[in-house]
Simulated scan of single mutants.
Amino acid sequence: MEADISFIGLFLQASLLVKFVMLTLLSLSVISWAVIIQRRRLLTTAKQSSIKFEDRFWSGVDLNKLYKEISARQDGNEGLEALFHTGFKEYARLSKLNGKVPAAVMDGSYRAMRVSLSREMEKLETHLPLLATIGSTSPYIGLFGTVWGIMNSFIALGAVENATLAMVAPGIAEALIATAMGLFAAIPAVIAYNRFTTQVDSIEMSYANFMEEFSSILHRQAYSEKDEG
């Protein structure tokens, strides 16, 4: 009887443990691609929103008007909008309480923006560790299935007197498929993780730069209000 060398045939003929390894790797691959698609959309939207808001911010619009526009929205705000809204809100609140102490106003506003920055970065970095974990562990899971499958093949080979390559070929093939599936799950996850990490770092840098520039604007405004007062 000839062995079925198709992928489905090899899977059905595989031992229970090797089947479990293959199904695990298939599940990890599906999860990986779901995360990749979701993170790509999120990071692309974050980058586009950042560019759009910076264009609006540096267009010369009155900051009080911009703040009111953002506050009036019902869908909330994210990214640079969140940093601006949080910083300006804290600035306005502290100006009423510590109008004569610009340093206290600026310190409170800056700390509020730092907290907002941390929250925004946490959103962008969500699930990235999962990609790193899948990318680093999948090859070893596949290798475990390969070692187990080959071991069973040689055990079966040693139990017969007239052994041929055709007798062990299916077992070795199913074992090597486990390694292939491990690489299939790992490679996209590693590539995506490296790419997304670079994009997150770039976005974080743009957020931090905006925060420093906005703080400088608030600093000048705070001291000019003090001088006028």
Rank of each mutant, 00 (worst) to 15 (best):
E90P: 05
I191Y: 13
T137Y: 07
S109R: 03
L83S: 00
I150K: 03
E2Y: 14
P188S: 09
K96R: 15
L117A: 10
N64S: 14
P129C: 10
V101Y: 07
I141H: 01
K47D: 11
A185T: 02
T24Q: 00
S59F: 12
K19H: 09
K52N: 09
G229E: 12
T179C: 03
E228N: 15
S95I: 02
N64W: 10
I172K: 04
G135R: 00
E69P: 01
H219M: 13
F196D: 00
I31P: 00
R40Y: 13
Y110F: 15
T137Q: 07
F7R: 02
G76W: 01
V30Q: 06
E120G: 06
L42N: 05
I150W: 03
M205A: 14
V190C: 07
A103Y: 05
T164K: 15
M205W: 08
A104R: 11
A159V: 06
R114A: 07
L183K: 02
R40V: 06
G158A: 09
E90A: 08
W148P: 03
V160G: 06
V168E: 04
S49M: 09
V115H: 11
A132F: 05
R40H: 13
G158C: 10
G79P: 02
Y110R: 15
I141Q: 04
P139V: 07
L130Y: 08
T44G: 11
S138D: 05
T164L: 08
T126L: 15
T197M: 13
F144V: 08
F7C: 03
R56E: 13
E120S: 05
Y91G: 00
S109H: 01
I187P: 04
V30I: 15
F184D: 01
S118H: 10
A14L: 03
A104C: 04
T146L: 01
D201P: 06
E125M: 10
L97I: 13
H127I: 07
D107G: 09
K226N: 07
